[in-house]
Design a protein around this nucleic acid. Sequence first.
DNA 1: TAAAATATGTGAAAGTATTCACAACGCTAT
DNA 2: ATAGCGTTGTGAATACTTTCACATATTTTA
Lengths: 212, 212
Amino acid sequence: MRKISESTIHRLSLYYRTLVSLQRERYITVSSRELAKRDKLTPAQVRKDLSFFGSFGTRGLGYPVNELKDKIASILGLNRTWNVALVGVGNVGSALVSYKEFPRQGFVIKKIFDNDQRKIGKNHKGILVSDVRNLAKELKEDRIEIVVLAVPASAAQSVVDEVVSAGVHTILNFAPTNLKVPDNVVLRTVNMAMELEHLSFALSNRGKIKEL
Amino acid sequence: MRKISESTIHRLSLYYRTLVSLQRERYITVSSRELAKRDKLTPAQVRKDLSFFGSFGTRGLGYPVNELKDKIASILGLNRTWNVALVGVGNVGSALVSYKEFPRQGFVIKKIFDNDQRKIGKNHKGILVSDVRNLAKELKEDRIEIVVLAVPASAAQSVVDEVVSAGVHTILNFAPTNLKVPDNVVLRTVNMAMELEHLSFALSNRGKIKEL
DNA sequence: TAAAATATGTGAAAGTATTCACAACGCTAT
DNA sequence: ATAGCGTTGTGAATACTTTCACATATTTTA
């Protein structure tokens, strides 16, 4: 299979959500045109994206909603559950524990870690907070596959180093800092301030932005 | 000025953060090579990005750290404060109220709205929660420029409609749903589940992803 | 003060991503 | 059956982004 671009994956996520809606609306089939309209894309883009993975449509008719949804779920790895650990249960961490979309898509938080004695041993949505000093050991024990990092920027790099050395190679980082990881580690950083910066750029430079 | 691409803006945000670090490390000047290394980019990319906005460097020497930082701040609209309102003070909303990067970059939350009577009138970090029924009126009164949306998916569209009709054209949405807005409105959606989907795709398809 | 070293700024080339445009195919109606 | 319509799947064309490569300018060294 040829390499798939970041933007295609992002759009697959969009299609997935749209297909869930279409399913609720009792659509049986959907055309690339309708799918494109709902996600503000072009029909050709939709068809091209899907064509990277196979031919799922029927000419003259469109794509079968249920089938396509399942197919995309399987491409995105949503047809199974993933063992997730959360490190840092401050403001952002607490929000993530309660984020209903995670379990809904198969991302199950199995462990929570913190370094604050007042938090360790406390219960968050049925999960006891572990001491971050046992991080490596417990990540292995629980076969954690994805770590979500919600610690202060200053602590992030050292936690990442330990996570990586414990064999977890997939990290979603909410700490507002650049992290160094080996090449075989997949790291995504979500920085909410950077999102706002796009908006302030747009406000400061009306018309100079390409798309948004 | 020619149109600037999304990716360039994103990288400007990265440069800005890196320059802040360099400033703390007492760097006086920095080369495109060093900047690129820290942000995992190429020197040519850095120079090209900056060249869209002017010539800030000195040949043989590099870029002046302080000056370049200020220049990028001004390009991104960070050399001033923005009046922000938060709608929805649930798990995600509460985290955002306490997010220290926001005020640090000039994004000042002036108002908080919710529809839950138990929350209205309560104090969050010194801000009283208003009734969302007064949304339009108070957005205007306080000259709010950016709205951050942290309401459930089901409520998001109707809040957006009201925000837009109140004249606010810049929205950061955390609700996991696709929103319809007029063309002149700048809407950015942050969907944390979609971020995890990139990771599960990467895990499920090791090697098939182009970059991450 | 001149030569060597360093690093920018930028056209041109290479590489990617998106859109076009249409042949191919399956449905629907008669 | 068959005509006509609708929609996919996909090479080719276009548009966009990144990288290359080098002329140009400045600093450093001796």
